[in-house]
């Protein structure tokens, strides 16, 4: 396929050119600091946390996300491209039927959303999702 500028723009905005546009997180260190504050600097493993977010968000003002981490006592959400990375921390009480929560968040641009769960045994697990935020257009 011949890629002229026009096609590239269309592909880029539609999010098909994922690897070509995979931007580095602009505030990586701030995010690491924020995560360290939540974990107390402990190692963070993978697995056991499910983070559901759209691959492409139609509008960064309202991005629906879901987190689930069976056996977690708390789940904290971070957005590594936002001016301030912390988004929310869910602490689950004795009457939480599951360690699941859904909410709507703001993303300042295309970036990674990271969910870090504190498990009952004191260990930490994380999952992340890259969300492309489309900006521009008339909305109709």
């Amino acid at each position: 396929m011949e890629l002229n500028r026009r096609k590239m723009l269309v592909l880029g905005t539609a999010g098909a050119a994922v690897t070509a546009f995979g931007a580095l997180p602009a505030f990586a260190s701030a995010t690491e600091d924020a995560i360290a504050e939540f974990t107390g600097g402990a190692d963070v493993g993978e697995g056991g946390v499910e983070l559901t977010a759209p691959e492409i968000a139609e509008n960064g003002n309202t991005v629906p996300i879901e987190v689930s981490a069976p056996g977690a006592v708390a789940i904290s959400i971070f957005a590594d491209g936002n001016p301030t990375p912390p988004v929310a921390t869910f602490k689950f009480g004795p009457l939480a039927a599951s360690q699941f929560a859904s909410t709507r968040i703001r993303l300042a641009g295309t970036q990674n959303v990271i969910a870090v769960a504190e498990m009952e045994d004191g260990s930490f697990k994380q999952a992340s999702a890259n969300v492309k935020v489309t900006i521009g257009g008339c909305g109709g």
Binding site: V87, A88, T89, K91
Partner: peptide
């Protein structure tokens, strides 16, 4: 549930 909310909540 007890949620700490930041400005990134819509």
């Amino acid at each position: 549930i007890d949620v700490q909310m930041e400005p990134a909540i819509s």
